[in-house]
């Protein structure tokens, strides 16, 4: 239970919230709209990268793992747990789009999901994440009746955010590796 659910949910939720905080910290990269809070499309939406990583690592299980972080982010954005039906359903596109795309690609013969003895190429994972960005952008905005500029904003925001998150994580892991390497060699 701890290893399969609680720990992944804690780690992924915190990563989601941290990356969401970065997205809100860059307010200049948003498309403003008078169509409600969900009509705002961050053009630097790093949480999409978290969805993609979670879906790659955990498959359909990522949907449940992502829910706490996603709705906590909604609370941070709106300041209230109350939400309309559409506001409740909308984030579900986000949490399930990446798992759906990895599943769909696997059905089409390109199974890039993590499994014993197989680690996909990073480009394939990003490609699945890009497809998920299309599903999320079109699905979410059909639900809210937003126009194509917001759909495009969702799409580019998810792609840019995903690339940024992968880049940041790559540099963090590289820095950790270099730190261990230098420590092993006895350097300061």
């Amino acid at each position: 239970m701890w290893q399969n659910w609680i720990l992944p949910t804690l780690v992924i939720s915190h990563l989601y919230l941290a990356s969401y905080w970065v997205a809100t910290w860059a307010p200049n990269f948003t498309i403003a709209s008078d169509n409600g809070v969900f009509a705002t499309a961050s053009l630097f939406f790093m949480p999409h990268g978290v969805r993609v990583i979670a879906a790659w690592l955990y498959g359909w299980r990522s949907v449940l793992i992502l829910i706490p972080g996603t709705y906590a982010a909604h609370f941070l954005r709106v300041g209230s747990w109350s939400m309309s039906w559409a506001e409740f359903i909308g984030p579900m596109f986000g949490v399930s789009c990446a798992a759906f795309c990895f599943w769909l690609l696997a059905r089409l013969g390109a199974d890039w999901r993590l499994r014993p003895g197989f680690v996909a190429n990073w480009k394939d994972v990003l490609l699945a994440g890009s497809l998920a960005a299309v599903v999320n952008a079109v699905g979410s905005n059909l639900l809210f009746g937003n126009g194509w500029p917001v759909v495009a904003g969702y799409f580019f925001g998810d792609i840019i955010g995903m690339l940024a998150l992968f880049g940041v994580l790559m540099l963090v892991f590289r820095a950790l590796r270099m730190m261990h390497f230098r420590a092993d060699r006895g350097e300061n």
Partner: peptide, 9 residues
Amino acid sequence: ALRSLLHGM
């Protein structure tokens, strides 16, 4: 696995 993926990148 995540570190391996990102190291490949």
